[in-house]
């Protein structure tokens, strides 16, 4: 027992220094404000001017000190429409990203785990391979594909030249020579889906792969067609993987700021951008910290909701037949 305690010491230390303390700091910053200290101007015996601070110290320079006071004004500021809109947009973008990743990723995982699919691990590696490249590089390459004079637009242009009917078709629908793909919400979602898709595929793949094949044989034996066998066995089994994938996509998606800055060109700011701004340009750490807390609460609520879906599913399954 003692040995076990000793073994956990490095991690406990790590957790305290790098997780608990920073979290406490964020909470502290979040619930405080910095205001100038109060002082009174006094005249010293030699006739010069000095300043008496509230704690009684006297100094000759004009006071620059600030003090932290506990205040919830940050939270009042958060519910201003500007920030609420950003939060809602972030949630919408993250949810859409998660949904698209799920719709794209689940079939991929299903195909890869198919009985007759050859070399699934090779394909899995091909899916993960782009993730080994730098995140920024990946996003920049999307930009060079989608920008106004990018690859996609030049392809469309040559297609239009080659096929007059296609050109006519586009012109009739008011499509100009350059189609604007970038710098809107869709572009941001595309960037996120591309970057997070493998985080959806992996957990689902792992769970489906572990399903005992004899369970599927048993289902078929008892009269389940392939589609029914999927609905009654594979789907309920893969639910934990789906929930994990949803968490792994949603959480980074709701807090990201780089993708929205690059693909959105600053036109689609998300809550992550605002937070980054508070710690950067605006250097209002207190507001930034309280926004972080807000996002944290939202993520926690989301995960709590997911967890209850998981629980409910189990209960429902229990009740469904009887």
């Amino acid at each position: 027992m003692k040995h076990k305690n000793l073994m956990s010491l490095p991690f406990t230390l790590w957790a305290v220094i790098f997780i608990v303390l920073p979290l406490c700091l964020i909470v502290w910053y979040g619930v405080t404000l910095e205001i100038p200290v109060e002082y009174t101007q006094i005249t010293l015996e030699d006739g010069s001017t000095a300043y008496k601070l509230e704690d009684g110290t006297i100094q000759t320079q004009e006071p620059w000190q600030k003090k932290a006071v506990i205040s919830f004004s940050n939270f009042k500021r958060m519910v201003e429409p500007t920030y609420l809109k950003l939060l809602i947009r972030s949630l919408r973008v993250a949810l859409l990203t998660t949904l698209i990743c799920l719709l794209l990723g689940y079939p991929v995982a299903l195909i890869l785990t198919g009985k007759d699919f050859k070399h699934p691990s090779l394909w899995m590696m091909l899916i993960i391979l782009p993730m080994w490249m730098n995140f920024l590089l990946r996003t920049y390459s999307w930009m060079s594909i989608l920008e106004n004079s990018g690859i996609l637009n030049s392809w469309i242009a040559s297609l239009r030249e080659a096929i007059p009917a296609f050109d006519q078709f586009l012109s009739d629908r008011g499509v100009g020579n350059k189609i604007i793909f970038l710098y809107n919400e869709n572009a941001v979602i595309l960037g996120m889906v591309y970057n997070y898709l493998s985080f959806m595929i992996m957990p689902i793949y792992t769970v489906i792969e572990k399903i005992d094949h004899s369970l599927l044989e048993a289902a078929a034996d008892l009269g389940a067609s392939p589609s029914k066998s999927f609905l009654r066995v594979t789907l309920p089994y893969s639910l934990p993987g789906v929930l994990e994938g949803v968490t792994m996509v949603f959480v980074p998606a709701v807090t990201t700021f780089v993708i929205s800055q690059l693909m959105g060109g600053g036109k689609v700011p998300l809550i992550g951008d605002v937070i980054q701004n508070q710690f950067g340009k605006s250097s209002d750490w207190h507001f930034g910290a309280s926004l972080s807390l807000l996002v944290m609460v939202v993520v926690l609520a989301f995960m709590r909701g997911l967890h209850s879906i998981d629980k409910e599913e189990e209960v429902q399954k229990e009740v469904r037949i009887f």
Binding site: D212, S214, A218, A219, V233, Y237, E314, K317
Partner: peptide
Amino acid sequence: FQRYALFPH
């Protein structure tokens, strides 16, 4: 089946 293949869920 040999190992019963009951549905654990």
